[in-house]
Amino acid sequence: MALLQKGWLKYILMLLVFVVGQVLVMTGILNDYLFATLTTLCINIILAVSLNLITGFTGQFSLGHAGFMSIGAYVCALITMRISTIPGFLLGVFAGACAAALVGFIVGLPTLRLRGDYLAIATLGMAEIIRIVFLNLEITNGAAGLNGVPQFVTWPWLFLFTAGTIHLISNFIHSAHGRACITLREDEIAAESIGIDATRYKVTAFVMGAFFAGIAGSLYASYFYFLRPTLFGFSRSIDILVIVVLGGIGSLSGSVIAAILLALISTYLQSFPELRMVFYAVALVVIMILRPQGLMGSKELSFDLLRNLGRSRKRRSS
């Protein structure tokens, strides 16, 4: 029976996802095109889960997540283009994540004192500044961008980083430190009155979010092998925000579900890029008007939830 405890089930489920993925890749069912979609999906999951930590759980509205992603992407690309080995790739991912976290710290420390929409606009400004800097640096080759970044991303790496991100952020949220972050979303003044250092926890969440966004960027660089500053503009930040909002502000499983859902939709709409954005826009407005808490609200997909759902359905039918 011990095997059926919730903690174990999670690991078994993760192993299952990995094995199925590995089989699909090895048998060639997951062709190059589908694998590219899967990579995008995993990157979006990492981005959404990490933004959810900042915006959903800590309540700090950030519109600059693409900026952190771009730092990870460029740093990883620059490193792997020089050290083109697996250790070089891992070094690149780690350095990219750390660089994003460092920028997150430098930007977060002063701006996280701002509330709500002011913070949103400040983070947006920050992402624009990062983009303009990449546009003008010689080492990043300006507007033309970097081409020929070595490809290292395979399914095991993709799985490791995605599952790892979800696991670590989920652990963090279910710790005293994570709960401190959530109190800031609920009521900052009350949180401070019970001894929670608002600035410290906001910066912690922001830096962690930036770190994982840096990992997502590194994976992006190492799979799509081509980087341009325009890839990381305002609309990329919005893409991530749409996933978080659709899935539910404050629900990690919601972010994962929404990322999968939107991946399916964009696959269908891929030959009409404008329509994809129009769809995203309509989705945002409709969700906010009809279901502002998103698909999952702040609930998590768990076995308890499924059991409760089953119970209420039975009750309704009887």
């Binding site: 963090f172 430190h177 019970i194």
Partner: peptide, 15 residues
């Protein structure tokens, strides 16, 4: 959450 001020464990155990 109000007991956080006497919390002993850091970020690593939390993660």
């Amino acid at each position: 959450t109000a007991m956080n001020k006497n919390l002993k464990y850091g970020l690593f155990p939390a993660l």
